[in-house]
Design a protein around this nucleic acid. Structure first.
Lengths: 118, 118
DNA sequence: TCTCTACATTGATGAACGTCTATATTGGCG
DNA sequence: CGCCAATATAGACGTTCATCAATGTAGAGA
C-alpha cells in the first residue's frame, strides 16, 4: 500500500476497473490451515507414497516396503510419512516392531471438498 | 540403500512384514508433474487469491482488486498470480492497462481428479 | 510527446524444505 | 540380559520459496 492515492486529487469515475472485491471469501487463518494439506501433497515422493499405500491390497503398508520403490533413505521416507500423518492424510498403527500406514478414511475426499468450496 | 542385506545371510521367511509393494503405482515423472499443481495450491495467499477470483461476480478480477484484501505488496501478488497461471489454474487476459484473471475452466476439477485417481 | 497508471521483472534476504548421515528408541528373540 | 531389526529423531547442508524495494514496460490521455 502507499503507492496509490499519493496526491490529494479527487479520482473521477475512471478509477474503478472492475468489481470492488466484495466479500473476503477466504479468511487468512482458514487459508493457512488449508494450505497445510496442500503443502503435504506438494512433493512428488509424498504423492508416490500415498499412491503406493492406496494401491496396497491390504490397505496398510510398512516403511520397509515404501523405502525401496522410492529410492530414498529410510529416515527421509519416515520424515515424509510424518508430514502426511500430521496433515491428516495418513494413519499410523504400530504393530510390534513394524509401523503400518493406511489412508485416513475420507481425507482425500475432504481435500476435494476444499477445492470445490474455494 | 546399502543399509540392508549387508551380510551374506539367507533370510528366512520372517523377513516379510507385509505385501511386496507390487506395482509402481505412480511413476516419478508423473508424480513430479502432479506435484506442481499442489505446490501452487500450497500457499495461504494463493488459496485466497483463487477464492476471491472465484467469488467474483464477473468471474474476472484485476490485480488492483487483489492487492488490498491480501495485505501484500503488488509485486508479490503479481508473483503469486504468475505461479497460479503457470500451474494452469488461472487464465490471464490483458485488456488495455489492466490484467484480468479468471479461473481456468475445469482446472480445479482436474485437481480433484488427480486426488481420486491417486 | 510527456506523463501517469497498471502491471511485470529483477535482485536481495530470510525462512522453510528435502535430503542425508549419525544416533536414539523400541520391540522381539535367544 | 543382550543383540538385532525396524523405525524415529537430531543435526547439518544445499536448494527452493515468499516477500519486499527498486526498476522496467506498456497502454491511455492531455
Amino acid at each position: 500500500m502507499g503507492y496509490m492515492n499519493l496526491l490529494p486529487i479527487l479520482e473521477p469515475a475512471t478509477d474503478e476497473c472492475c468489481a470492488p472485491a466484495s466479500a473476503p471469501a477466504l479468511g487468512p487463518e482458514e487459508a493457512k490451515q488449508q494450505a497445510v494439506v496442500f503443502k503435504a501433497l506438494a512433493d512428488p515422493n509424498r504423492l508416490r507414497l500415498l499412491s503406493i499405500i492406496k494401491a496396497s491390497s491390504s490397505g496398510a503398508t510398512c516403511v520397509c516396503d515404501l523405502t525401496d520403490p522410492l529410492d530414498l533413505s529410510q529416515p527421509t521416507v519416515s520424515h515424509h510419512l510424518k508430514v502426511l500423518v500430521e496433515a491428516g492424510l495418513l494413519h499410523r498403527e504400530k504393530r510390534g516392531t513394524w509401523a503400518y500406514f493406511s489412508l485416513a478414511p475420507g481425507a482425500l475426499d475432504d481435500v476435494a471438498g476444499i477445492l470445490a468450496k474455494l
